[in-house]
Design a protein around this nucleic acid. Structure first.
Lengths: 110, 110
DNA sequence: TTTAGTACCTTGCGGTGCAAGGTATCAAAT
DNA sequence: ATTTGATACCTTGCACCGCAAGGTACTAAA
């Protein structure tokens, strides 16, 4: 009951920064969807496929990302996503927004 | 166009911590809804009435808050919200969750 | 008795995460 | 040859929730 509450809160917080996290990860290296899910899971940002795929499509349609197909040595071809210049610009805006929120909460909590 | 994007991102990030902010503010002092809106606006967490009222009701129904009516010297009576023990417990859990997310993003950004 | 200020609350819409289910490719085992 | 398992992509339907807009009610001053 209470545990459910806490999980709900955590996921709500994570949601707010999900798009930010994706751009962060892609800023370092191109990646394909399944790979991204793994990396975000490692970073304790839980994401499921049904969330990530529509999100990537949205970001692509906003011109933040592009993709290319690449053959894999094992398994079906992979769709590698890359940050565009526009995506990088937005990432920097997100950095600012994030910093601002962290500062705000520091004040609220002090 | 782009400005709208950024605003959208910020509000999405804020949403994730809205409940947390409310409990933070109430942890220091009891407050009534209009007052809360003012305090959160000062903290650059924009909230509108249509968001706050249902949220307070939700938190009250979850047993995180209680309220009492108080007469006002000018205007209608005010509904002062107070954190319950359960609310305070959850606030501490939120502190942990928030710290964890901040750490996670530090890692993702490094 | 009208206007202005303060305070409470509800309704309808749109956006979005998630669970579940579906499709396709490749390679190894039967 | 065909079944199985691993990998990878994607869609659908539900439910939740923030927000804009609109509504009610009390008080005091014009």
């Amino acid at each position: 009951m209470n545990k459910k509450n806490i999980e709900n809160i955590k996921s709500q917080m994570r949601r707010g920064v999900l798009e930010y996290c994706i751009l962060c990860v892609l800023d370092k290296n191109d990646a394909y969807a399944s790979e991204l899910i793994g990396k975000l899971k490692d970073a304790r940002i839980i994401v499921v496929e049904g969330t990530l795929y529509p999100l990537l499509t949205r970001q692509k349609n906003q011109g933040l990302l592009t993709y290319r197909w690449e053959e894999s040595t094992q398994g079906p071809p992979r769709k590698y996503y890359t940050l565009t210049d526009k995506g990088r610009d937005l990432l920097h805006e997100m950095d600012k927004a994030w910093t601002e929120i962290v500062e705000t909460l520091d004040i609220l909590r002090k």
